[in-house]
Amino acid sequence: MPHDGPHHHGHDHAPDDPSFGSRAALGARALRELLEEAGVLAPGEVARQVERMDTITPALGAKVVARAWTDPDFKARLLADGSAAVREFGVEMGTTPLYVVENTESVHNMIVCTLCSCYPKPLLGIPPDWYKSFEYRSRAVREPRAVLAEFGVRLPDGVAVRVHDSTADLRYLVLPRRPEGTEGWDEARLAGLVTRDCMIGTAVPSA
């Protein structure tokens, strides 16, 4: 029976095949050329978007977290309306609102997208490979504590795990707890403690 869905046109290959990149690269080039010929993409438009994408790193999210740790009014705004609050940092979430979940002494939040790989890209950039892996997507909702243990996170007794399956229109940011021993630190120094994984919920910051 003919299959009328999408097809993959490259050769079969093992992921460690050194020519893998160049074969797939032909597909990307073919698509870009066709879209440019159709008048849909202007020459250079894709390259400019790549440049924009390269400027977005988890450091941006870390600044937001550090601000929330030092400015209670900002933290309140961030929790009430994440998209509006990060606009103060020049981040535009578009049609997918930012939803911020706060870790407390009794709740640890952890984000997954079991159906695909939804992620707050305008704030944190491209998601890590593990976040997109079948293993993480499968297990995070079934055995979150075992997954956390693999990442080196062991929660104290009395802390509930709250997993968020990013199935629809929201994009999630975990607001981690500010580590003890950081009293008096300024925002820049605090931001240095906030790794990407802390903002997904598979790590906790420490001073």
Binding site: V141, P144, R145, V159, A160, V161, R162, V163, H164, D165, S166, T167, A168, D169, L170
Partner: peptide, 9 residues
Amino acid sequence: DPSDTVDVE
């Protein structure tokens, strides 16, 4: 833990 949850949209 019995208090663990998952939130789904």
